[in-house]
Design a protein around this nucleic acid. Structure first.
Lengths: 149, 149
DNA sequence: TGCATTTAAATTGTGCGCAATCAATGTGCG
DNA sequence: CGCACATTGATTGCGCACAATTTAAATGCA
């Protein structure tokens, strides 16, 4: 009593993960025209948002917030520094620690970014209830995949 | 009557898109150890899945299915060809068209991949109802973001 | 038929993601 | 104190994603 081929799990239309992946790509793609005005990529925008909330932290703390490591963040932070948006200093008490803080230009950029979330919500054409439930499901999945591997 | 700063939309914990993005990254990360046995990356696995369903198609058709363009697919398909999993031939009737088809090794790999979806579902620790509703929301978002830009 | 237009795929360049490795600094324990 | 060990971040290398451009082939139409 083996399953017939048509009910195999190995079909693209059954892959939740592929839906997630495609939606995530499409989302980043949709952000790009909005962020072009700010001269930021999607991830750079995320990192700036973290810093707008809490203007100084080290790479490890930042990485924990955005779920990324120094291999991704170090070059990104260098690019943000090159744009004059952040300052990469060293901790006095521990020379290993890189302190990331906002420059004046970085702080100022926040105003221009304020309208981005609403514009994206509009693009999504989904209700806040739908979006909120999507967010909950993603947060749960992330938690389940990251705790105890 | 302007909103106080604490209710700004520009906070990381309010970004549905960031949840989606982080969950998608975590998902691809979780797939990797499972796919290592097959010597495939996540996207290569997706492309192979498309070909397991329909063993010959051109780059444009493939791109439409996985929502990616030739800039991503061409090098990926070359890598799959180098591994001996696919064959990149040319259409007789239209020399511009690249026909992608499975080699015997590519067809054979399917058996080893059959168990991957169930293993991932288990890793997610979510019910099929939760996953199904997540999938629906992602599919809707993708549709809304891609139709009429 | 000849030439502009369209189409398919490849190429180029930039910026992620992430595993693996490395260097530098700090800490703890004998 | 000295040395093993842990921690922080940087580096390297590979494989996506994607915009923009290029190449080559097909099509349309005067």
């Amino acid at each position: 009593m083996t399953k017939p081929d048509s009910s195999s799990n190995l079909t693209l239309d059954k892959q939740i993960c592929f839906s997630l992946y495609s939606a995530s790509n499409a989302m980043a793609r949709s952000y790009q025209p909005l962020l072009k005005k700010l001269d930021l990529t999607y991830l750079q925008y995320i990192v700036m948002m973290v810093l707008w909330q809490d203007s100084t932290m080290n790479v490890k703390e930042l990485g924990a917030k955005v779920h990324l490591d120094s291999g991704t963040l170090t070059p990104l932070l260098k690019r943000l520094e090159a744009k004059g948006l952040v300052i990469r200093s060293r901790s006095q008490s521990d020379e290993r620690v890189r302190l990331i803080s906002l420059s004046d230009a970085g702080k100022k950029l926040r105003q221009a970014a304020e309208q981005v979330p609403d514009m994206m919500m509009c693009k999504s054409k989904m209700t806040s209830e739908e979006l909120s439930s999507l967010k909950q499901a993603c947060d749960l999945l992330l938690k389940n995949l990251t705790t105890a591997d």
